[in-house]
Simulated scan of single mutants.
Amino acid sequence: MNTPNFFKLNKPKTKRESLKIELPFEAEFLNAYNFYSEQNYFYFDQLKDSDFKEELWFLIKELRKTNAQKTPFVTPSNINFTFKRIQKFNPILSKIDLFKTKRIKEKNAKERYIANNLLNEVKDESEAITLANFNAITNIKKEHIKKPISFELLNEMYKDIALNKDYRLRRENEHSSIKDNLGETIYHTAPDSSFIQNELSKFIDFANKNTTFHPIIKAIIMYFWIAYTRPYTKANNELARNVFYFSVFKDNYDIFPYLPLWSLIRDNRDQYLISFVRTTQDNADLTYFIDFFLDQINMSLNTFIHDLKKENKKTETAREVQSRMGLNIRQFGLLQFFYLNPDKKTSIDAFQKQNKVSRRTASEDLNLLVKRKFLRIKRIKNRFFYYPIFENIEKTLKAL
């Protein structure tokens, strides 16, 4: 078996010390800086080729250091992880904040979560994993956020997703890494377990502390720390995701389980890996990873808003149609169900339970549909069942 290659960033060939960096910065450079470091956050290999590319890069790096915010976390070589809240982040964070005050009413929360977050696992395991993840998120929302985060709570959250398998904290000389899907390239090797144990208290303090960072940026940093240190033998990405949920739920951002965020991140795994590497190999600059993560949140929010508008439009159309037909929403819903399931039947008891109405109302609804020749009644022993007259339902719905 071939040994995987370790991915390394393309870096400038010229040493920083050999270039003359002149201040103050000229207007042309400031425009370039604004494009490369405020409207976007580019790495050296994304800069436009020119005779001054390397000099421009070092000037950009100098200016990026100003106003960079320190996190409490360090690399094994004691370099502080830092980030800049660039201009690009502000409209995305403002959009997310709009949903902080909105309560999401979702009847099919579990189904929407599962549809948005099915994992690319073997078929017979995927449903169990997805259900375990859903239950874990429910536990976070209902129970875990009532407590401050601690080592014990972290272990409890981990057990929620470990599916009773022999997953545990890594021991000394047990290594963990992030590879591509084929296992041919290593993008990150996690620090030793002894380093993680020393840093864990910082993580717990950071999680429980009110920082000056925007809550979403704080949650992304918490996600990154778990993904970077990989403290457990397996399922570190799932734990990182749930730590992210813990943090956003603490700050009342309830929308995230309804977003297709994690499926987007999976679909853009190459970008995820590159943003991770740029952070770890370019002076622990978390801005790269935060930039990627906020882009995925922004896209998932756009998808959610688009889907919500479509659903609202469908609901409005359905109401107009049922009004023209002289039916209520329960009756119209039943016709739609029978159109898709012509071999099914219903009863007064079933219809009453499904719609949470009185028996009398259920009976009146069904008998009107019989009168309009959409349903027929059939007696089986001592019970009456209602069957669709499919050709009439089909003809009516297709004519709308």
Score class of each variant (00 low, 15 high):
N283S: 14
L286A: 03
L264M: 10
F292K: 05
S263H: 07
I265W: 07
Y288G: 03
D270A: 12
D285T: 11
N283I: 05
D291I: 03
S275Q: 03
D282N: 15
Y288F: 15
Q271Y: 13
T287F: 11
R278N: 15
T287Q: 06
F256M: 05
F289M: 02
T279D: 06
Q281R: 12
Y272D: 02
T287H: 08
F276K: 01
I274R: 09
Y258E: 12
F256V: 03
A284C: 09
I274V: 12
S263F: 05
I265F: 07
T280W: 14
L286C: 09
A284M: 07
I265H: 07
Q271M: 07
D285Q: 13
D282W: 12
P257F: 12
W262L: 03
T279K: 00
F256W: 06
T287V: 10
D270W: 07
W262P: 00
D267M: 09
I265L: 07
T287I: 04
I265Y: 09
I265M: 13
R269K: 15
P257W: 04
T280M: 12
W262F: 10
R266Y: 14
I274Q: 10
F276H: 12
Y288H: 08
W262A: 00
L261G: 00
D291H: 10
F293H: 02
Q281W: 13
F293Y: 14
I290G: 04
Q281G: 11
L259T: 05
N268L: 06
Q281M: 08
V277P: 08
Q281L: 08
I290C: 01
Q271A: 12
N268T: 14
D282K: 10
L259W: 10
L259S: 02
Q281E: 15
Q271I: 03
T287E: 07
R269W: 11
I290P: 10
Y288P: 06
I274L: 15
Q281Y: 13
S263C: 06
N268E: 14
D291C: 10
N283L: 11
D291F: 15
T287M: 09
R269D: 09
I274N: 09
L261N: 04
P257Y: 10
I265S: 00
T280Q: 14
S263M: 08
Y258V: 00
Y258M: 12
Y288C: 02
Q281H: 14
N283Y: 13
I265A: 06
V277M: 11
D270Q: 13
N268Y: 14
T280I: 08
D267V: 02
I274T: 12
R266N: 05
L264S: 09
L286G: 02
S275T: 11
V277F: 07
T287Y: 14
R278F: 11
I274H: 05
L273G: 01
F293D: 00
N283C: 08
R266G: 05
F289A: 04
R278A: 05
L286H: 07
Y258R: 03
Y272C: 03
L273D: 01
F293V: 03
N268Q: 15
Y258A: 03
D270H: 12
F256G: 01
V277H: 02
N283H: 15
L261S: 05
F276Q: 04
F276P: 01
T279Q: 04
T279M: 13
S263Y: 07
R278S: 05
